[in-house]
Design a protein around this nucleic acid. Structure first.
Length: 482
RNA sequence: CGGGGCGUGGCGCAGCUUGGCAGCGCGCUUGGUUUGGGACCAAGAGGUCGCGGGUUCAAAUCCCGCCGCCCCGACCA
């Protein structure tokens, strides 16, 4: 190990110098993305897309395991459809992209490029649902959406992004509520166990909820710079859209009723979360479960032992369990040291070094990305040990992120204390809030911090409102956020 | 949309004040020597200086306009 971190990573700004620049340097240098010629749009490069594909696979399994089926709806939404739910159109109007021409002809009605698909999907659901027997209807879609953003950042906020959106219809309010909560739990399980990102789940305030929803639930994560990130949302839409789109069904009691709905989504933003939760000055640290390359084998080639080393490396690939994503870096012209730094920057969880000395000793050297620990593994132990190490790295990343979050969560009792700590320490803040919109807005105006969520399981804890001091306030988490 | 900063080979920058052959480092290509924490030598390739006007014998450099990107705010997955 060298004595100076900077020797290892060139051209990536250190986090403590400029976190934002660190992030931007990293996404470009590691070839996760590149800027495209359209404002706020990016090309997701193969290395970045591979992370998304792994995430898709793992989440899609969970979505299907909870009874949902995938489908696809059009990217174009007739403008009039978007306008059928008042709050919804008001919320999204400022950021819709509109198509007014098709070929050489002006369109009779402009088409909105979907910012989210409630409108187009509800218009279809209205046709598909007549009876209680048609319910629940549980559909998910993987697609792109477009929101004309002013302030964009790779993965965190882009004009176009990839996501999944679930849209379900139920016959009772209770069932819709249960669904919205269940899918939030699915997200929490997915994000914590696959991405190793700890999240706090809870409800959004009225002010922060989705345009058109009855209630919005959220999972919130804390980034390494002390800012919070909304990592996923699940909405109980109530009957708002059902009424706007005439989604009705004849119930068992022979009454015609409006249906109850939910929608829920996570996006490529989660890639940003992985970067900002786990990364360090040497680059990305990808959780093994979603890393495109879990193990990189780096041959230490010397002139005399060149063929022997390469042969042993190729053998090793065949000995590893088939499910391990492994890559042999046998590129010529790059020194071993250069490759070490490159793969560390790209966040590969585990590196196996195979050189003459390792072969001599009957094994390979393993180096973990999460903590830099180096160990020698005998050849016969490699297949089993690799799996153990990857599991341990995954767990360790989660543990470290959780510890970071806990040591950066502060309980505050006064507004002055809150404002002071917010400047000094950043992070998440626990406090009480009376529920008044006025207090919520004043806090935001004063501090730039928002109420991230009203956490589940803390309903019994009550106290004086952070802002107005009124007793009986609910426990909330506050933070500055992305 | 307001405030600030920046646009010069792929990347990072110098040159601009005081107009006069478009440079440096890294990367890239080829050949050779190397390879246990970002190797070395040699020979090469690569630029409408963000875009459009203007001033001038002459513009990366001066003037006007526009565009893009980044940072900080208002709005948001």
């Amino acid at each position: 190990m060298g004595n100076n971190e900077k020797e290892f990573v060139k051209e990536v700004t250190p986090q403590n110098v400029d976190f934002s620049q660190w992030y931007l340097d990293l996404v470009l240098k590691t070839e996760l993305m590149d800027y495209a010629p359209v404002k706020g749009c990016m090309a997701i490069r193969p290395y970045g897309y591979a992370i998304w594909e792994n995430m898709q696979h793992l989440l899609d399994k969970r979505i299907k395991a909870t009874g949902h089926k995938n489908a696809y709806f059009p990217v174009f939404i007739p403008q009039s459809l978007l306008e059928k739910e008042a709050e919804h159109v008001e919320g999204f109007a400022p950021e819709v992209a509109l198509v007014t021409r098709g070929g050489n002809e002006k369109l009779a009605e402009p088409l909105v490029i979907r910012p989210t698909s409630e409108a187009i999907i509800c218009s279809m659901y209205a046709k598909w649902i007549q009876s209680w027997r048609d319910l629940p209807l549980l559909i998910n879609q993987w697609c792109n959406v477009v929101r004309w953003e002013k302030n964009t950042r790779p993965f965190l906020r882009t004009s176009e992004f990839l996501w999944q959106e679930g849209h379900t219809v139920h016959s009772t309010a209770e069932e819709a509520e249960e669904e919205a909560r269940k899918m939030l739990d699915v997200y929490k399980d997915f994000v914590e166990n696959e991405l190793a990102v700890p999240v706090i789940s809870g409800a959004k305030t009225e002010r922060e909820k989705f345009a058109g929803a009855l209630r919005t639930y959220t999972i919130e994560a804390l980034m390494a710079d002390g800012k919070a990130l909304q990592a996923g949302t699940s909405h109980n839409l109530g009957q708002h859209f059902a009424k706007g789109f005439e989604i009705t069904f004849l119930d068992k009691d022979k009454q015609l009723k409006y249906a109850w709905q939910t929608s829920w989504g996570v996006s490529t933003r989660l890639i940003g979360a992985i970067i900002m939760v786990h990364g360090d000055d040497r680059g990305l640290k990808l959780p093994p479960r979603v890393a495109p390359v879990q193990v990189v084998v780096v041959p230490i080639i010397t002139k005399k032992k060149r063929e022997e080393v390469l042969r042993r490396c190729r053998e090793l690939l065949g000995e590893l369990p088939a499910e391990v994503r492994v890559e042999l870096d046998d590129r010529e012209g790059y020194s071993a040291g250069w490759k070490f730094n490159e793969w560390e920057m790209k966040g590969v969880p585990l590196r196996l070094e195979v050189g003459p000395r390792d072969i001599e000793a009957g094994g390979a050297s393993a180096v973990r990305r999460d903590n830099g620990e180096k160990s020698f593994i005998r050849s016969e132990d490699i297949p089993g040990k690799i799996q153990v190490l990857l599991k341990d790295i995954q767990d360790n990343l989660f543990r470290q992120a959780l510890e970071f979050r806990e040591s950066n969560t502060h309980r505050v009792n006064s507004y002055e204390e809150f404002q002071q700590l917010l400047e000094e320490k950043k992070g998440l803040f626990q406090a009480f809030w009376c529920g008044d919109l006025h207090c919520e807005e004043e806090i935001k105006n004063d501090t730039k911090a928002t109420i991230r969520c009203i956490p589940f399981g803390k309903e019994d804890e009550n106290g004086p409102c952070l802002y107005c001091g009124r007793e009986g306030g609910k426990m909330v988490y506050l933070a500055r956020s992305y």
